[in-house]
């Protein structure tokens, strides 16, 4: 918690302030996020970890404007998401947020290239050709652009999704278990690409994962338990992450 202030000079890409989110009502109510505050530094690769039900996906959904919060505020850059209407949220997701999901990332009717440029196309914008080439080269898809998703391997599909997220130069890319459906080699390729895009293009990335190896690619790992942040690591290796996970029960979330 003490290290956060160092990064404020470079600015925050996203932040959650005192966010609470509960599902259900009455006795069945489950508190997914419990007065949680998190800052996401610009140009950094942040991983969110925690056991099932710890609230890590909910946090990501709230940060990305996919879900609303019960109380507290969520910001992307200088924009407060809390209170934006559906149209505002949609436009924000299109222009300032990128997504990589675990699966069903692509539209089967479109070619790889069309999938990559889809968010821009929805906004009636043309991609910058040089930047497009850079991104496509970075994910190594130059010779696959005319293929449809059904003609691509799982790893290739996920790389298309990464390129799609990167192309509009969003404030933040949210990756939700991006390697969950991949073999380890393809998974490592994706993670390598994500960390390179942070280093080379100063892209901000937030990744939810339960895989310690994946988390080890991040600059910073946040650990959640019962909707609260209980620990964080900076530039960790896989072993440190694993150890923290094992010991997570001993942290007091209160």
């Amino acid at each position: 918690m003490t290290t956060v202030t160092q990064e404020t000079i470079t600015g925050l890409a996203a932040r959650a302030v005192g966010v609470t989110k509960a599902y259900g009502a009455g006795a069945a109510a489950v508190t997914a996020l419990d007065d949680l505050s998190v800052d996401v530094q610009r140009g950094r690769f942040t991983a969110i970890m925690g056991p099932s039900g710890s609230g890590k996906s909910t946090l990501m959904h709230c940060l990305a404007g996919l879900d609303t919060v019960d109380s507290g505020e969520v910001w992307i850059g200088e924009t407060r998401l809390t209170g934006l209407n559906d149209k505002g949220l949609a436009d924000l997701r299109r222009n300032r947020v990128g997504f990589v999901f675990q699966q069903f990332n692509l539209l089967p009717t479109l070619t790889a290239e069309e999938n990559i440029t889809l968010p821009l196309a929805i906004a009636n914008r043309k991609p910058d050709p040089a930047w497009f080439d850079t991104v496509v080269d970075a994910v190594g898809l130059s010779d696959r652009l005319t293929h449809r998703p059904s003609e691509l391997s799982g790893g290739q599909q996920q790389r298309v999704a990464c390129a799609r997220a990167l192309l509009p130069k969003p404030d933040v890319i949210f990756a939700d278990e991006p390697t969950g459906n991949l073999d380890s080699r393809s998974g490592n390729e994706i993670l390598g690409f994500l960390s390179r895009s942070v280093e080379q293009f100063h892209q901000t990335i937030v990744m939810v994962t339960h895989d310690a190896n994946a988390a080890a690619y991040a600059d910073r790992v946040i650990f959640l338990l019962d909707g609260r942040m209980v620990h964080e690591l900076h530039d960790p290796d896989a072993e440190a992450v694993l150890d923290t996970m094992k010991a997570l029960d001993t942290f007091d979330s209160r």
Binding site: D86, K87, R93, L106, I122, R164
Partner: peptide
Amino acid sequence: TRELGLLRAIGMRRSH
């Protein structure tokens, strides 16, 4: 449904 969800996630408005 999933595709529609994806489209919404990457920024299609309801009107879209």
